[in-house]
Each structure stands twice: as C-alpha cells, then as structure tokens.
C-alpha cells in the first residue's frame, strides 16, 4: 500500500515536471528562429507570401497554445505528428531512442561487470599494489574527455588496425567502441563508488558477525556486503543518469550513432521543433522515470526505506 501511494505521488510529480518542461521547451524553441526562414534560406526570390505559405504548411501560423496542446496530447496518444522535414516523428524517435538505449544499457552493463569485481577487490585489498593500480586507472579514466577518447579509439582500431567499423550502427561490432568510450568514464566513477561503499560496508560489524557465523568469504562479500553497498551504488547511478545522457550526445556524434543525441543536434540545426520538443520531452520523461525506478529499486533493496 505505501508503495502504491508512493508511485502515485511520484507519478503526479512526474506529470507536473513534464508539463513544465514541455511548456518551457515549446516556448523557448520558438524563440530561436523561424524554421520557414531556415527552409527557404537557400532559395532565391523568397517573398513574404512564400514564407507565409510555408508557415501555414508547417502549422506555424496557429496560436502557440494550440500548437502546444497538439504536441502534448500527441505525447499521450502516441501520435507525435510530423516532422517539418521528414515525415512522421514516432518511428524516427523510437528508432533513435532504441539506439540510444542500446548504447546506454550496454555501456552500463559492461561498466558494472568491470567495476563491481574490481571495486570489491580494491576494497578488500586496500592499500595493496592492485588497489593502487585500480585507483590510478580510475583516475585516468575520469580525466579522459569523451570526444578525445572516441577519436583515439577510432584512429587505433579503425584507421590503423582496421578491426572495427569507425562509425554507425551496423551490428554488434559497431557497438564496441562507443560503448567502451562511455563505459570507460562510467567505469571510472562506478569503480570509485563501489570501492568506497564497499570499504564502508566491510568495516560494519554485521560483516564480522556474518564471518563469525562461519559463512564463506564469498557469501560474506557477495551476499551481505554487496547487497548493502548496492544501495549507495543505485542511488549514485540514478544521479549519474543525466550526466550519462549528456556524455551520450557527444559520443553519438563522434561515432555517428543514430541516437537521440544526433537527432537532437540535427533538429536544432534545422529548427525542427516537432522533433526537438519530442526528443527533449522524452529525455525528461526518461530522467523522471529513471529516478522513479531508482527509488523503487532502492525500496526493494533497503527495507529501512520500504517500511518507514
């Protein structure tokens, strides 16, 4: 019951956030330039009539609130309308969203598969040579700019070695470099979080109690310690999501990944409001949704939250 109430409460909050975000986006976007002018900028002999005709064709002559309402109701009905320049939005955006999620999830999973065991190792062997190496590597990982790292990978693995495709989404091999680029940064930060929270949990008395019960070190670490430190990790991942999305835009551009970031950049350059406002709204929905999921996972992991 409290869980349902909680979801209802967060759902309402999410709706309000979306309302504010979409209204702001729709409004702000229209301040950045007239798409009719952008369309006709390379055509000769443009008259005011031509502009008016194009505006009418794009539906830009209607009052702002009507345009806004069409857009918002479309978000709920799934009928997202048409892009100014390239047909129905829904398939374009779902395709891009799929590509972005594929990349984000792969990077996240790879990063967790690397950072959890290494983080645990570093925490258990605090101050050892291995711990030092891991800490230096994670610091190095943090200091790579996304863009630079992406270009370096391309130069090494595509241009020089010719092992991997330099760009695009053309199959599993094309996923490797973009996922690694994002994964390196994620891993670097996750590693630090896992190490720190593990250190804290491992010094807790209940860990010693678990050992005193005769449990193997394996179940002490992976059952008791990991479950407890995952609470902090999940919280952190939720907070990190926005940053991850920001990083994705850059990485998508470098690897020409047909995702939301590339789509947004193109839409911006063309003043394609319908696409742009859909992309931003979906990102906002995702951030709200991820935070909701984080809260729910948090509740599942931590009975202290669930039962209060």
């Amino acid at each position: 019951m409290p869980v349902i109430g909680f979801i209802a409460k967060r759902g309402l909050q999410a709706l309000f956030v979306l309302f504010v975000v979409t209204l702001f986006i729709s409004f702000a976007i229209r301040l950045t330039g007239d798409p009719a002018v952008m369309m006709l900028r390379e055509s000769a002999n443009v008259s005011a009539d031509d502009l008016a005709r194009v505006r009418e064709g794009l539906g830009l002559d209607r009052p702002f609130l009507v345009q806004y309402w069409d857009f918002v109701s479309g978000l709920f009905t799934g009928d997202l309308g048409n892009s100014f320049f390239r047909g129905p939005i829904a398939p374009i955006v779902t395709g891009a969203l799929g590509a972005t999620l594929l990349l984000a999830m792969t990077s996240l999973i790879v990063s967790l598969l690397i950072s959890i065991p290494l983080g645990i190792y570093a925490a258990r062997h605090r101050g050892s040579f291995g711990d030092q190496v891991i800490r230096v590597l994670s610091l190095a990982g943090l200091s790579f700019p996304n863009f630079w790292l992406g270009i370096m990978l391309i130069l090494i693995f595509s241009v020089t070695l010719r092992w991997l495709p330099a760009s695009g989404l053309t199959g599993p091999a094309s996923l490797i470099m973009p996922a690694v680029t994002i994964g390196v940064i994620l891993t670097a930060t996750n590693l630090r979080i896992v190490r720190t929270t593990m250190l804290e949990v491992l010094s807790a008395q209940f860990i010693m109690v678990a050992r005193a019960k005769g449990l193997s070190e394996r179940s002490v670490i992976y059952k008791h310690a990991l479950r407890n430190s995952s609470i902090a990790l999940v919280t952190y991942l939720g907070l990190q999501f926005g940053t991850l999305m920001g990083g994705l835009v850059v990485v998508e551009l470098v690897f020409n990944w047909p995702g939301m970031g590339t789509l947004a950049v193109e839409a911006i350059s063309q003043r394609d409001y319908p696409i742009l406002q859909t992309v931003i709204s979906i990102l906002a929905i995702m951030i709200v949704l991820v935070n909701l999921i984080v809260d729910l996972v948090y509740m599942a992991l931590d009975p202290r939250i669930r039962l209060e």
Binding site: I151, S158, S167, F255, N256
Partner: peptide
C-alpha cells in the same frame, strides 16, 4: 551514401577504407 556529421569521424572512415 553514408551520413556522418563529425568531420573527424568521416575522415576516419575514409582512412579506414570503409
């Protein structure tokens, strides 16, 4: 025809033979 927005990436694709 491949559409590659980043100049550096487009060049890398050429250099890599793709």
């Amino acid at each position: 025809f491949r559409f590659i927005r980043e100049d550096a990436t487009r060049l890398a694709e050429l250099q890599s033979g793709a």
